[in-house]
């Protein structure tokens, strides 16, 4: 079509302009993270550093304990991923495949829970966490981070289980497999793409989580990246060249992981109207 050709000449420049606006903070990040101190605080500000300060990369690891925060984030995110998967997968299988009273209610509840902000329960969560003696512990963050993706992940896994033809499972049952065996030996291997999506989603959520870490973690040794970087700014003299470098490094894992699941995430969020 002719207007398709003309559209191209309009679309490309417009795309470039919009991308420039949307990626602006990342351009700033890249511009700042290799600047020297004086370049970072030049007036008027400059886009191109007068020289590239590679040592910033070393400084964030040596002087700012970035490794400790990375480790904390990694422990929390991996713990949350494991716990989340362990509780979601069985629940999703039950909802997708088994007939029981309350199935509809369970589905409805899950969908509604997904909408809740943790902020509305933060004051009572504080009491619960304190009562379990889990203030300032990884355990609190692992459990809570795992929990607040349970609804979405159960939902996603349920979708994957449902796409597997019932015949396969019934054949296995006839051959003498138990229900649990069909789940672990037949359903799970087929649902691997779904499982990967769910695990990555849980990991990303925990890696990016801010509120629980802000509320429940007080010792520096257990601080995940998000809180560490936030506290970093709180101080009177923020060294933004180091902060942007740390931000860049902290972003790499989540960006990579997000691209793996992005298409399935969109399909899962938008429901039946988009195919993954």
């Amino acid at each position: 079509m002719k207007w398709q050709n003309r559209a191209r000449w309009l679309a490309i420049p417009l795309t470039i302009v919009i991308l420039f606006i949307l990626l602006f903070p990342f351009f700033v990040m890249i511009s700042t993270m290799l600047k020297s101190g004086p370049d970072t605080y030049a007036t008027p500000p400059i886009w191109i550093p007068t020289h590239i300060e590679w040592s910033n990369f070393v400084t964030v690891w040596t002087q700012y304990d970035l490794a400790s925060y990375f480790l904390a984030s990694l422990i929390i995110a991996m713990g949350a991923t494991v716990l989340n998967t362990l509780i979601c997968v069985p629940a999703a299988y039950a909802i997708a495949r088994l007939r029981f009273v309350g199935r509809k209610v369970a589905m409805y509840l899950l969908l509604m829970i997904e909408m809740f902000s943790p902020v509305i329960v933060i004051i009572s969560l504080f009491k619960v966490v304190a009562r379990f003696g889990m203030l300032d512990s990884y355990a609190a963050l692992i459990i809570l981070d795992a929990l607040f993706t349970v609804a979405f992940n159960t939902w996603m896994m349920n979708g994957y289980f449902k796409t597997i033809p019932k015949d396969i499972e019934e054949a296995a049952l006839i051959d003498g497999c138990t229900r649990v065996q069909t789940m672990t030996r037949i359903m799970l291997p087929i649902a691997v793409p779904g499982l990967v999506t769910v695990m990555i989603y849980a990991f990303i959520f925990a890696w990016n989580e801010f509120l629980f870490a802000l509320t429940f973690i007080s010792s520096k040794a257990k601080m995940p990246l998000t809180i560490a970087l936030y506290n970093f700014v709180g101080r009177w003299t923020t060294q933004w060249q180091f902060l942007t470098m740390a931000a860049f490094l902290a972003l790499i894992p989540v960006l990579v992981l997000f691209y793996i699941i992005e298409k399935r995430l969109v399909a899962g969020l938008a429901g039946g109207a988009v195919k993954g």
């Binding site: 919009i18 931000a247 972003l251 989540v254 960006l255």
Partner: peptide, 16 residues
């Protein structure tokens, strides 16, 4: 490229 703002970590984006 358009996805990056969504893919990025919200707390880190806010700091940037």
């Amino acid at each position: 490229a358009f996805i990056i703002p969504w893919a990025s970590s919200v707390p880190i984006s806010a700091l940037l």
